[in-house]
C-alpha cells in the first residue's frame, strides 16, 4: 500500500483507503474516486505542482496534500 503521491507515473493503482475527513471523502467520491476504483497517475512534474490522475474518463488535477491522503495498491489482481 502506498499513497497516490508515491505511485509511479503512468502506473495504475486501486484505491484502498482515503485517510481524510468527510468533506474531502465526499468531494473525491463525487468525482468518482473511492475505495475500489482504479486510478492512473498520468503526469507529475519535477517541482511541487499538482499531479494529474485519471479515473475512468475523468481527468483530475489534484494537489499533493490531497494525493498523499489517497492510498492505493498495485500489482495484486
Amino acid at each position: 500500500m502506498m499513497s497516490l503521491l508515491e505511485l509511479e507515473k503512468g502506473k495504475e493503482g486501486r484505491v484502498v483507503l482515503i485517510q481524510a475527513g468527510r468533506g474531502l471523502i465526499n468531494k473525491l467520491d463525487g468525482l468518482g474516486i473511492r475505495p475500489g476504483v482504479s486510478v492512473k497517475k498520468k503526469s507529475v512534474s519535477l517541482v511541487e505542482s499538482p499531479i494529474l490522475i485519471s479515473v475512468g474518463r475523468t481527468q483530475i488535477a489534484i494537489g499533493r496534500g490531497m494525493a498523499s491522503k489517497i492510498m492505493v495498491e498495485t500489482g495484486k489482481k
Binding site: 499538482p50 483530475i60 489534484i62
Partner: peptide
Amino acid sequence: PELFIEIPP
C-alpha cells in the same frame, strides 16, 4: 486551498 479541478477534454 490546494488545487482540485477536473480537467475537461
